[in-house]
């Protein structure tokens, strides 16, 4: 029983990372209609910034998260305004190709700067955890989940409580109508992408505390973000939260099932994804339209 409880907790904690990673991906997809294949690269840039600050200046990884957010926000704004905006109205294939290319460029640059060596961020508390009876909750992962939920709350508040958020949602809903109320499309596009990138950066900072990072370590997170958004549904912050947590749970519970092992983690999750697509294509909480 306590074994099962432990698995549930580990699944939710892993899910927290998926929530953090997928929030920005989901925002950019939902508003700009871009499936951003460079998302994982943005994640890993955030991870390296956290590592750099930890390694050189001994900054606590959780304290470096705002730096990740700010740096990636600026990078994201420039990337969208300077490059991606040129194909914003082009067919999906063009944005696929372009963001795939951006991913390659960023990963190569990271490789040049940081080499392919494994890096890890190991603050003094990294091996510790909360012991409740026979169940253990690692502090690092708990902090990650807390940050993920905080990010979700911030995104929800931006979208639903601010003037800029209303403009972002308006652009996502109807570009022409948004322009007719006076919204500067180019600015909102860039801002949306910048927020998505900032969230990716923070997710990267969290990830650097729980796994070793390499320049290509972000790539799987693009795919997993995609899966989380399909699972949860597009167009709602709550859907990404539910999708991320569910994805983490499925992955952890699946590999502890009899006859399966950790090698099946990815496969199980994607089988569930296919089932969701067949049975409920709009995802667990997605909007109909």
């Amino acid at each position: 029983m306590s074994q099962f409880t432990q698995q549930i907790i580990l699944g939710l904690l892993l899910g927290g990372i998926y929530v953090a990673v997928a929030l920005g991906f989901s925002l950019v997809w939902g508003i700009l209609n871009i499936v951003n294949l460079a998302h994982g690269a943005l994640v890993i840039v955030g991870a390296y910034i956290t590592w750099l600050l930890f390694d050189r200046l001994h900054v606590d990884p959780f304290l470096s998260l705002p730096v990740d957010a700010l740096a990636l926000f600026v990078l994201g704004y420039a990337l969208q305004r300077g490059v991606i905006n040129r194909v914003i109205r082009a067919p999906l294939l063009f944005t696929f190709l372009l963001t795939f290319g951006i991913n390659l460029v960023i990963v190569s640059l990271v490789l040049l700067i940081f080499t392919a060596d494994f890096r890890s961020v190991t603050p003094s508390y990294s091996g510790n955890g909360l012991h409740l009876g026979s169940v253990t909750i690692p502090y690092i992962r708990l902090g990650g989940l807390a940050v993920a939920l905080l990010l979700a709350g911030i995104l929800w508040a931006i979208l639903n409580r601010t003037r800029i958020g209303a403009a972002i949602l308006a652009v996502g809903a109807d570009r022409d109508a948004a322009q007719l109320v006076g919204i500067d499309l180019r600015h909102i596009y860039a801002l949306t992408f910048a927020i998505g990138a900032a969230f990716a950066g923070v997710a990267g900072g969290i990830i650097s505390t729980s796994q070793s990072i390499t320049p290509t370590a972000g790539d799987p997170y693009t795919l997993q973000s995609f899966a989380v958004v399909i699972l949860g549904g597009l167009g709602r912050v709550s859907a990404t939260v539910v999708g991320g947590l569910a994805f983490g749970l499925i992955e952890v519970l699946g590999q502890s099932a009899p006859g399966l092992g950790s090698g099946y983690a990815g496969a199980i999750a994607f089988v569930v994804l296919v089932i969701v697509l067949v049975v409920r294509p709009r995802g667990l909480l997605g909007r109909l339209a």
């Binding site: 209303a166 308006a170 109508a177 007719l180 919204i183």
Partner: peptide, 26 residues
């Protein structure tokens, strides 16, 4: 110079109030 487009083109998943306030965006 403000254009009210054909077919209303409201932001249908937003509240009426938010739609109206978006009109004053600038």
């Amino acid at each position: 110079l403000v254009h009210v487009p054909q077919g209303r083109r409201l932001f249908s998943t937003m509240t009426v109030q938010r739609n109206l306030l978006l009109g004053a965006y600038r």
